[in-house]
């Protein structure tokens, strides 16, 4: 498995004046769908983007407790898919299956399949090395969790794992990732300060930069803004909409407005089952199931 098949970050602002940051010898693997900076309105994209991942009858249990009870749905490439539902519905558990972070704990069991495309492999299969998988599918957590190292070392963590050793190469990777996460201007003079000295919102963008620097194909975001104020939240959302050009994202959120603002597709889960999934506009405006209707209009949850 190639760990870095994702196209290099091209900074906001387009092609002009960014020669230093331009991809070196790597042809862009994704055709530009829209000009940078002009996001297509959410939810109105052509739905026929290729499928990047697909859950097929996915089950998951902790000991005797079955948390996911057979979930099937596709995730389209370069789209943001939101997982919504009341607390305890299993949406975080679902998210954490994608990079098999559950494997760190004992007493867990997967069932069904979680297929990754274009490789067409089952992520839960026996032949899959979870370490390799996590190099391709990264995760951003609810609480910003920068390592107690410098800003630079945090972002360089992923490239180092990928085997980058040369100083100038590392510096380049770090700068690219920090620019992509709109943090460069704020931290370029503080690269060697402890990351924990940044504000909460900056820390979370740093965690996204750390994730980006590892060049993942999919980023999983587990309520990434629930610990942040509205301004910091807005920055993260803008960032996600920008990254959507080249990275597939799955976000768990408690915040329905956030799902409506940024996601292309939405899946509503309840008590470990997938109630309904589809285009975000459909789920919010015209859901098929009454339960979905009740949840998105705030009747419960």
């Amino acid at each position: 498995m190639a760990a870095a098949t994702v196209k290099r970050a091209s900074p906001k602002g387009g092609a002009g004046g960014t020669g230093k940051l331009a991809p070196s010898g790597q042809p862009p693997t994704v055709a530009p769908r829209a000009a940078v900076g002009t996001m297509p309105p959410v939810g109105t994209n052509e739905p026929e983007a290729p499928i990047k991942a697909e859950a097929v009858g996915l089950r998951f249990s902790y000991g005797a407790h079955e948390v996911l009870k057979g979930i099937s749905m596709p995730f389209r490439q370069h789209r943001i898919t939101a997982l919504i539902g009341p607390s305890g519905c299993g949406k975080s558990t679902f998210l954490r299956c994608f990079n098999r972070i559950h494997d760190l704990y004992s007493g867990i069991r997967y069932g069904g399949e979680l297929r990754l495309y274009p490789d067409n492999i089952d992520l839960l299969g026996r032949g899959i090395n979870p370490i390799l998988l996590r190099l391709r599918i990264n995760m951003v957590f609810q609480k910003p969790n920068p390592f107690p190292k410098s800003v630079f070392e945090n972002v360089a963590f992923g490239p180092r794992l990928l085997g980058v050793k040369r100083k100038d190469e590392l510096a380049h990777e770090v700068e690219t990732a920090l620019r992509s996460s709109a943090l460069w201007e704020e931290v370029k003079d503080r690269l060697h300060e402890p990351a924990l000295r940044l504000s909460g919102g900056q820390q979370q963008r740093l965690c996204i930069a750390r994730s980006l620097a590892a060049r993942p194909e999919i980023i999983l975001l587990d309520e990434p803004t629930s610990a942040l104020d509205p301004i910091a939240t807005g920055r993260i959302e803008d960032l996600m909409l920008e990254l959507r050009e080249r990275i597939t994202m799955i976000i768990v959120t408690h915040n329905l407005q956030q799902a409506a603002r940024i996601s292309d597709a939405t899946a509503f889960m309840y008590l470990g089952e997938l109630v309904e999934h589809g285009e975000t506009s459909t789920i919010f405006m015209n859901p098929t199931k009454q339960l979905t209707q009740q949840y998105v209009t705030g009747s419960f949850g």
């Binding site: 996590r134 609480k143 969790n145 992923g158």
Partner: peptide, 12 residues
């Protein structure tokens, strides 16, 4: 969360 952050990036 620090450990998970490291594992989630593909660290052994």
């Amino acid at each position: 969360v620090l450990r998970e952050g490291s594992y989630a990036l593909g660290a052994t």
